[in-house]
């Protein structure tokens, strides 16, 4: 019975991954066309990710002079695996949890801390200057977003008195964390954008680096890299929905439906930032993160701590 539940959970994580990646690519295309003033054709756009994938797979693979071939091949797979672990830590419905650990939020944090390794390896391995600059940029970025990310997640775990994610969801039965800790969700989403190096925080892959860390990556590696990046966004949105928007809690519909709706509510704005917000310079992001975001996240955990003390009385 228990094994069956794990199998169902793993299958559903796979299904959510595929659907989430596809949805993210589709929304990205639609928003991009709308912002550019082009005619939005949702049905046409439905097949666009597949066409892009086929074209990328069929192109001649490029390589560089003396790359570190093993780590180059490893980087996209590592990013995809880390994103999948992050997603597996999120309960999709009561009891539907692939990675049923007592410290789910620490598991998510550990997987997301290793994303820096994957992006750095992707930039480092081709033995090419622009990707390497992208890799170094991401280290600066990663060291800046990691602390706010960890601190706001800890603050969200405080009212639940548990590091497992299911109790965090049920602790929001009366009041969601987005209301209880107003600083939490905005800080989390900003850190999440950095984590997925997406939109305004696409520092390692900016246009000023002609594509940055994945500039030299081609063929199947490139497809895997893009899908893994989108999967990181999906994992961020799903975790945000569970931890700040009450997860599966909601009237009338089954829990899984609420979870999917809430994940989409977070995912679409995250995707859309790429077309609405300009990319931030690395130095400015690092300064803002250390001087403003980290103190704000400490304030967030302070507020959560006071609330927990008052509630314990």
């Amino acid at each position: 019975m228990n094994a069956l539940r794990v199998v169902i959970a793993v299958v559903s994580v796979g299904a959510v991954s595929v659907a989430g990646i596809y949805l993210a690519a589709w929304v990205d295309l639609l928003v991009g066309r709308a912002v550019a003033g082009l005619e939005v054709r949702p049905l046409d756009a439905l097949s666009a990710p597949l066409r892009w994938g086929a074209a990328t797979a069929l192109k001649t693979r490029t390589t560089t002079e003396r790359p570190d071939a093993e780590t180059w091949a490893l980087a996209p797979a590592l990013l995809a695996a880390l994103a999948a672990v992050g997603l597996a830590a999120v309960p999709l419905a009561p009891g539907l949890l692939a990675a049923d650990v007592a410290n789910g939020i620490v598991l998510f944090g550990a997987a997301m801390a290793l994303v820096v390794v994957a992006v750095f390896l992707q930039g480092w391995s081709p033995n090419s200057p622009l990707p390497m600059i992208g890799g170094y940029r991401f280290i600066a970025e990663g060291l800046s977003y990691e602390i706010p990310l960890a601190v706001v997640l800890i603050a969200a775990a405080l009212p639940a008195r548990s590091l497992a994610i299911a109790p965090i969801v049920t602790s929001q039965e009366h009041l969601w964390n987005i209301v209880r800790q107003p600083l939490g969700l905005p800080l989390y989403l900003m850190a999440g954008l950095g984590l997925a190096f997406w939109g305004p925080l696409a520092l390692p892959e900016g246009q000023d680096l002609a594509g940055g860390s994945s500039l030299e990556t081609s063929g199947v590696s490139r497809i895997l890299w893009r899908t893994a990046q989108l999967l990181v966004l999906v994992a961020v949105a799903a975790m945000g929905a569970a931890v700040f928007l009450g997860g599966w809690l909601g009237p009338l519909f089954p829990g899984a439906a609420w979870m999917i709706v809430k994940t989409i509510i977070l995912l679409v704005p995250l995707i859309a930032t790429r077309h609405f917000v300009a990319r931030v310079p690395t130095e400015r992001y690092v300064v803002v993160s250390w001087a403003i975001l980290i103190p704000l996240s400490l304030l967030d955990v302070f507020i959560a701590g006071i609330q927990a003390l008052v509630a314990a009385r």
């Binding site: 801390a113 290793l114 390794v117 990663g142 060291l143």
Partner: peptide, 20 residues
């Protein structure tokens, strides 16, 4: 469980700095 995961979390950052 907590110690093992924290070890991985901590070393992920530290080894990247080490590489730099």
């Amino acid at each position: 469980e907590f110690l093992g995961l924290i070890l991985i979390l901590m070393m992920g950052g530290e080894m990247t700095i080490m590489a730099v």
